[in-house]
Write a protein that binds this DNA or RNA. Structure first.
Length: 919
RNA sequence: GCCCAGGUGGCGGAAUUGGUAGACGCGCUGGAUUCAAAAUCCAGUUCUGGUAACGGAGUGUGGGUUCGAUUCCCACCCUGGGUACCA
């Protein structure tokens, strides 16, 4: 009987849904939590690149379940976001509608793939019963501050108690830079509003008036990780710097723990490395330079040993002391330079990295050790928000300082040397001895550094300091389609709404655009006030709010009393395996770790890292096709003739191309402007060009999984996706290749048929058959555990070819094989299983154990090489001694022929590996 | 520039701790079946010389270590990803 995947897959899809075989509940088995990055449900639906990770995780889930684990495998949707909102702006349709339609479509497509998701745990970040708890977590952040002494987040009431006892002089907590020192009495005498403003400087969710990435095109601010090359990642609109009041999360308080935690988790090196660089910890020294007019300028350096190489100071254009330092003659120039800098957008700054600019203030500082006069400059290469916004410039040993000094003809003093002399380029290596440095001369770099550290603190002009590149995360967006903040304003002071008033639902509005005054869309909502009196916050939360904790909500998605139940969190804990794209390295994956640590500090969860292991699946690339149109004409030239004309390369829909040949008639009909197109062909065919690039609608190279399932079935698609290559690598998609796995599946199916009738034999298996089976079980088990799914597929092909050759249809062999194959091709295996066992689900079986004795042989085909080059192989019993092997080898005629009259220098025998004759 | 991956036939890719390079599949070639095609089955397929047996070369490039290197070391080239003045 033919393999009819359509009826098989339809049947089991229904059965599985009806019997809820993927539903998970807490039981006394060991848990295993497998998570896929949940998708944003876009209108385009899935293409074959999307399910790659889902199929891999599904195979692992099914395998773990066969191993006896209680496997949690949920799926949901990251449904707040820009495309739905932009669609809403264009059509007036509420984003909720499109979100619903799109996620239903996704769900159907995912179900067609036979993925073992527990859909009863489905969540959408835009559902009120989900974002209710996102708002609730925001409230906890607002109500917390970070205590550096306990190294954790603590409820704000503790801080208030401390203020009442001792003021803030002994408080060690991250806070805004402009926080003043006050005593307990001063605190008590403050008004309520004044107190609230001070508390806001300590809260983990706070209002900050800072420079933000303002994106006019999107009408909103963006976080650093949402901006690239000066444009927004979504949409590609220009981003500029603007000072605005925004909600921010004090992620910097967790910088050190986020860094340290990386050591405990099994993540791809590249992601860890990216997070490390993003956090950017550097330790150094703050040193105070006195100016001639007695001001203190604090600088930060990581290289104190170069202090005698300082030939100027550079301040950021925003530096607080600038007005006092600038002499009258320079005031105009400095003012102009400042204006230029403030105007600069991120884009300008990035595109002009190589240019050097700056102005001299006219003032001098005094070198803390040599008392030498040091000119003070300003330049935009010094950032106001890193370190102290001022540096000591050591041109001989820093690339930017060097360029600056050369440009403005400032002297360059070399103070570190390994023999080379600084002339045309700086010496950046941290190797060598200190020179030209008074009392530091001849010391090693580390000794000199230590000495300066000590002296600086003795003289009371500095202290060691640690700086991070990481910035607090801007948390408000001037958009509609996001979580509203559970916040209203009373006398300009932000206040939280009560827990029992959550969720604060998105109000309906007449248009999804900003107001005429430039306020966010929520300002349009009518009668939307807290207790009809107080204004709500009009911004909404960013896209990453909901995704920062969704893995927790899956554990208990229907809980109406808590964000997650205690029993659930205790049993399921954190994610054991997380599969998704690497593009979230510094966004989602960092924010999730931050929120997890925060919730851990509040004892709301029992783990401090969200994802124990991460695997980044590689992107599947599409093969794009091109046609070549002669410039100015509606004539297309075939690929090999195109160089004879001036042509424009145009993407053509891959559905109009077959094996590089353009289907000319279909192409003509595809667009009005092509109706009358003419073609210059070669051998009567129009050949298209092709190249491999990202699979994307705009390149017309998208392959839809639905079409493939229609033609070959989901099992073939699943296996083919795995067969393409290693999970983590980028790989091109070529649909033709699927015939390989498709015919494998048909061959496997036919193992169970004799003369068109289903038939498995009860005969006892031979040793040879057992050997084949157990070898395969061993190999598959190992490969699955190393996530090497592509090699699993070839093993299945190999065993199937072998069993066909020996015509084996014995139950003793095929039954275990079915279980081993079932994670990969669940429909097929379930169908055959039910033919043997009736109603039983193959997923409830046990993964078979292998017996090594069955496939370890007592002889070995030794490859014999001469001088490392393989010449022949000889079958030798494993029990022979080296001497016996040697005698056997040299007595072979082929061997004596090969050696001829040369002398054997040595024979190397590696047991069960190789024999090498050296002549 | 810096950091991280990766580079193996016409193509996707295999190859325990250094030990038979090219498993498995696609494609291609030839054959069987068929009126024919699709599908299926059988054989071949790294390049190169040879009918063949058999030889030579060969894992981005150049060196090195080793009896033996796709695997280890050094230098370089290329592709992809990340990052952007962080003192």
């Amino acid at each position: 009987m033919d393999y009819n995947f359509k009826t098989i897959e339809e049947r089991w899809k229904k059965e599985w849904e009806k019997n809820k075989i993927f539903k998970t509940t807490i039981n006394n088995k060991k848990k295993f939590y497998v998570l896929d990055m949940f998708p944003y449900p876009s209108g385009a639906g899935l293409h074959v690149g999307h399910p790659l990770g889902y199929i891999a995780s599904d195979i692992f889930c099914r395998y773990k379940r066969l191993q006896g684990y209680n496997v949690l495998h949920p799926m949901g949707f990251d449904s707040f976001g820009l495309p739905a909102e932009q669609y809403a702006i264009a059509t007036g349709q509420h984003p909720e509608k499109t979100t619903k339609v799109n996620s239903e479509k996704y769900k159907k497509q995912l179900k067609n793939l036979g993925l073992s998701f527990d859909w009863e745990r489905e969540l959408k970040t835009s559902d009120t019963n989900y974002y209710k708890w996102t708002q609730w977590i925001f409230k906890q952040l607002f109500n917390s501050y970070y205590c550096n002494i306990d190294d954790k987040a603590i409820h704000i009431s503790e801080l208030i108690a401390e203020f009442e006892r001792n003021g803030n002089k002994s408080v060690q907590s991250p806070c805004d830079d402009d926080t003043q020192v006050f005593t307990a009495d001063e605190w008590k005498n403050l008004s309520y509003e004044e107190q609230q403003n001070i508390l806001l400087k300590y809260r983990l969710a706070y209002l900050s008036n800072t420079w933000v990435n303002w994106c006019e095109g999107l009408g909103t601010v963006l976080a650093n990780d949402e901006v690239k090359d000066g444009v927004s990642i979504r949409g590609g609109y220009t981003v500029e710097q603007k000072k605005m009041k925004q909600w921010a999360l004090r992620i910097t308080a967790y910088a050190d723990r986020l860094l340290k935690g990386l050591d405990q988790i099994d993540w791809p090196n590249s992601v860890k490395e990216q997070q490390k660089n993003w956090i950017g910890k550097s330790s150094g020294l703050n040193i105070i330079f006195k100016t001639e007019n007695n001001l203190n300028i604090s600088i930060f350096t990581t290289r104190p040993e170069t202090i005698f190489g300082v030939s100027f100071l550079v301040l950021s254009p925003e530096h607080e002391h600038l007005s006092q330092l600038c002499i009258d003659d320079q005031k105009e120039k400095i003012r102009k330079y400042q204006i230029k800098c403030f105007k600069k957008t991120e884009l300008d700054r990035i595109s002009n990295v190589d240019s050097v600019s700056g102005e001299f203030t006219g003032s001098y500082a005094l070198h803390p050790f040599s008392n030498e006069k040091i000119p003070i400059w300003i330049s935009d290469y010094v950032l106001s928000n890193y370190g102290s916004g001022a540096i000591m410039a050591v041109p001989a040993h820093d690339a930017r300082d060097f360029k600056f000094a050369k440009n403005f003809k400032i002297k360059i003093t070399q103070v570190i040397s390994n023999g080379t002399i600084v002339e045309n380029k700086p010496y950046l290596e941290k190797e060598g001895k200190v020179i030209n440095s008074s009392f530091l001369n001849k010391l090693s770099i580390s000794d000199a550094s230590d000495k300066i550290s000590k002296l600086v603190s003795q003289k009371n002009i500095g202290s060691s300091s640690i700086n991070f590149r990481l910035r607090d995360a801007i948390f408000s967006r001037q958009r509609y389609w996001g979580e509203p903040f559970p916040v209203y304003y009373k006398n300009n002071i932000p206040q939280l709404i009560n827990d029992d008033e959550l969720p604060l639902e998105l109000p309906s509005i007449d248009s999804y655009l900003p107001t005429k005054k430039g306020d966010p869309p929520l300002a349009r909502a009518r009668n939307w006030k807290y207790k009809d009196n107080y204004v709500y916050e009009h911004s909404t939360m960013p896209g990453w709010a909901g995704s920062s904790w969704y893995f927790i909500r899956y554990l208990d998605p229907h809980n109406t009393k808590k964000f997650v139940g205690e029993k659930e969190i205790k049993y399921w804990e954190n994610v054991d395996l997380y599969i998704g794209g690497a593009e979230h390295a510094t966004g989602h994956l960092l924010y999730s770790r931050f929120w997890t640590k925060f919730l851990f500090d509040l004892s709301l969860i029992n783990f401090s890292e969200p994802f124990k292991k991460i695997i980044n699946q590689g992107m599947i690339l599409g093969e794009s096709s091109f046609v070549y149109r002669i410039k100015g004409k509606n004539t297309f030239v075939s690929y090999n003739l195109k160089d004879k004309y001036k042509t424009t390369k145009i993407h053509v829909d891959i559905n109009l191309v077959e094996k590089n040949h353009l289907k000319i008639n279909k192409f003509k009909k595809s667009r009005i402007e092509y109706n009358n197109a003419e073609f210059i062909c070669e051998d009567d065919n129009y050949i298209c060009g092709s190249s491999v690039e990202k699979m994307s609608k705009s390149f017309y190279n998208v392959v839809n999984p639905d079409n493939i399932i229609e033609k070959y079935g989901a099992d073939s698609l699943r296996m083919f996706e795995m067969f393409l290559g290693p999970l983590t690598q980028f790989k091109p998609w070529k649909t033709e290749g699927i015939t390989g796995v498709y015919s494998f599946i048909k061959r496997f199916w036919s193992l169970f048929y004799r003369n068109d009738k289903f038939e498995v034999s009860e005969e006892i298996a031979t040793n040879e058959e057992k050997k084949i089976l157990h070898e395969t079980i061993f190999k598959i088990k190992n490969d699955i555990e190393q996530y090497s799914f592509n090699t699993c597929i070839s093993s299945f092909m190999i065993i199937t070819n072998k069993l066909r050759k020996i015509n084996c249809n014995k139950k003793e062999i095929l039954e275990p094989l079915l279980i081993v194959l079932s994670p990969f091709a669940p429909f097929l295996c379930q169908e055959i299983w039910s033919k043997i066992h009736g109603e039983k689900n193959i997923i409830d079986e046990k993964f078979p154990k292998y017996d090594e004795k069955l496939f370890i042989k007592n002889d070995f085909d030794y490859p014999v090489s001469v001088n490392g080059k393989k010449k022949l192989s000889i079958n030798i019993n494993k029990n022979l001694t080296d001497e016996e092997i040697e005698n056997l080898v040299v007595s072979q005629k082929r061997v004596t022929d090969l050696i001829g009259d040369k002398k054997i220098k040595k024979i190397i025998i590696v047991k069960n590996k190789i024999i090498n004759i050296v002549i």
